[in-house]
Amino acid sequence: MDKAISVEHLKFAYPGVDDTPDIVVFEDLNLQIKQGSFVAVLGGNGCGKSTLAKHFNSILLPGGGKVYVYGMDTSDPEKLIAIRRCTGMVFQNPDNQIVANVVEEDVAFGPENLGIASPEIRNRVDRALKQVGMYSYREHAPHLLSGGQKQRVAIAGVIAMEPKCIVLDEPTAMLDPRGRREVMDTILKLNAEKGITVVLITHHMDEAAQAQRVVVLHQGKVAADGTPREVFSQVELLHSIGLAAPDTAELCWELNKHGFDLPLGSLEPDECAQILYEALKV
């Protein structure tokens, strides 16, 4: 069984307030995520990406269809804790997910809830803090850390529960470039070294470009799905749903309108420069 998450014919709507109609988010969504993969879910504001993330952890339950997390049905109340042990969640605002006023105490919160023995919690907390590079801050107060550091503490809090999968809901939206880089490096490392499945919800193209697979959501439907190269080559499609490709792909696409014939899949500046060089050298 190498399927981490499986979404089958998912239906979901937020109930309307008073006499306003329900807000339909998903009508029939299907998506499989492989164990150990790094998947970015990309989409504009209001495309349903955060709603989807909340289904992976039984925070929201399907209105129709099924969501399976490691084979467990998320609508089965018996499986709730088992599901949450398997998939950890990291949210957008780091301030609103840190519980304790000492870094290590916060990281210990999850394992403590699981009823793990004290010495083992200590081990896990130390290991988790080292993995995110925050070990030397273990006795600090969270409110004095930078945004990127807080978010790494939040990630440590999740991996201390030793999940198989981490779902991150726009973890970098409130961070500056340095914080974003810190968080992205941490995520990539966890995926590569620990084999943790990563689902990254984002609207930053350059972050999605670092994933193995990009799923583009639009109005509750999968608008594109494939490797970053495949997805970001579809520049017109991205534009039509209010998104943009990375600047490199956008440049090549624009140049192609001016008589060039360039492939659109280049995402790194150096690679893009190389392609342009090949096209232009005499």
């Binding site: 925070i59 950890g88 210990a108 919160f109 394992p111 403590e112 809830n113 009823g115 793990i116 919690i121």
Partner: peptide, 13 residues
Amino acid sequence: CRCYQGGDGRTKM
């Protein structure tokens, strides 16, 4: 999400 279910069965680091 971090499996908090009140004080029962909780341990301490």
